[in-house]
């Protein structure tokens, strides 16, 4: 692979890595707060994609002017984010909250159940086939230094980065962020208190909102969505969250970028059939040497504190 091809693949990897990072932050926020792997997150994102598709199909009759298209995408991302946020809050309220005192496997199994239910909702909503996203900027390519990239990929970055910056400010500058960072996980004893309930609800909302934005970015990047997209995206995003150190927001973003890059480069070098296997092979080897992930704290260090 020559340098230009390598850089080209890096560009594709970063684009997909950014929205995987957005999803991974969702996993990591929920895990950091209630200690639960929210397995249905991928399918919440898929439903966000369905809503975005409906909005964009309504707002963007082809051919579309770039400015109109961008505004429609931003509106779709906001709506999809709000929808996924609310859906996540409902899932927490009606599925996870009654199981706060249950053995750890009960919420896990419920999460998997919710995932299948949502997948079937997606099947009914958009049907069994791949559905094409409106082709905003699809034909527009730009070339810089021999590396060509699609304008649509810039749009993916443009809608994915601002929510991450907002999250950074939220976590660093607000009382909510400070209280979220001050606890590694809400204990069972405090989970039912009003304060903790609000914190958990808000966390689920933010997680869903980021997932909703990620769904629009993924739809623009892949140009199609389908009712099974949540499964594989969720798997990659969960991998990113674990690789970055589950519970760590910067770790999730870095993990997303690493997974995106690894996937793009392994597709180009080994072929698309081996991409997933190679990503997981790297994860296995990495975790063997650093089980806590890139930014995670080891148990001994955490215990000393």
């Amino acid at each position: 692979m020559d340098v230009a091809s390598f850089l080209q693949q890096c560009g594709i990897g970063i684009t997909s890595g950014v929205f995987l990072g957005l999803m991974a932050v969702g996993y990591t926020l929920v895990y950091g707060t209630v200690g639960l792997i929210h397995f249905a997150h991928g399918d919440v994102v898929m439903l966000g994609g369905c809503l975005a598709l409906a909005i964009l199909s309504f707002l963007v009759p082809l051919p579309v002017a770039p400015v109109t298209g961008c505004l429609a995408v931003i509106l779709a991302a906001l709506c999809s984010g709000l929808f996924c946020g609310c859906l996540n809050v409902c899932i927490d309220r009606f599925v996870y909250r009654p199981l706060r005192d249950a053995p750890p496997l009960s919420p896990l199994v419920s999460a998997i159940g919710v995932s299948f239910v949502l997948m079937n909702v997606g099947l009914v909503w958009i049907g069994p086939t791949d559905r094409a996203f409106p082709e905003i900027f699809l034909a527009s390519t730009r070339s810089v230094g021999g590396i060509s990239f699609l304008m649509a990929d810039l749009l993916v970055l443009a809608i994915s980065v601002p929510p991450l910056l907002c999250l950074y400010i939220l976590l660093r500058q607000t009382r909510f962020g400070r209280s979220l960072r001050s606890i590694a996980a809400i204990t069972r004893a405090t989970a039912r208190s009003g304060e903790a309930g609000k914190l958990i609800g808000t966390t689920f909302f933010i997680s869903g909102f980021l997932g909703g934005v990620a769904s629009v970015a993924a739809g623009i990047h892949a140009t199609t969505i389908n009712y099974q997209m949540g499964h594989q995206m969720g798997l990659y995003a969960l991998t990113a969250a674990v690789l970055g150190g589950i519970g760590s927001v910067p770790g999730a973003i870095v993990g997303g970028l690493v997974v995106g890059l690894l996937r793009a480069i392994s597709v180009a070098v080994l072929g698309p059939r081996w991409a997933m296997a190679s990503v997981f092979l790297v994860l296995i080897v990495f975790l063997a040497f650093r089980p806590q992930g890139i930014y995670g704290k080891s148990k001994t260090r955490a215990g000393q504190r």
Binding site: S5, Q8, Q9, I12, G13, S16, A218, H221, A222, T223, T224, Q228, M229, H231, Q232, M233, R263, A264, I265, V267, A268, G271, P272, R273, A275, M276
Partner: peptide, 17 residues
């Protein structure tokens, strides 16, 4: 002669090859 992963969301990286 290459086999793809039929579960993949997209093939942008592969199309480069």
């Amino acid at each position: 002669h290459v086999s793809i992963d039929p579960q993949a969301a997209e093939f942008k990286s592969f199309v480069g090859s």
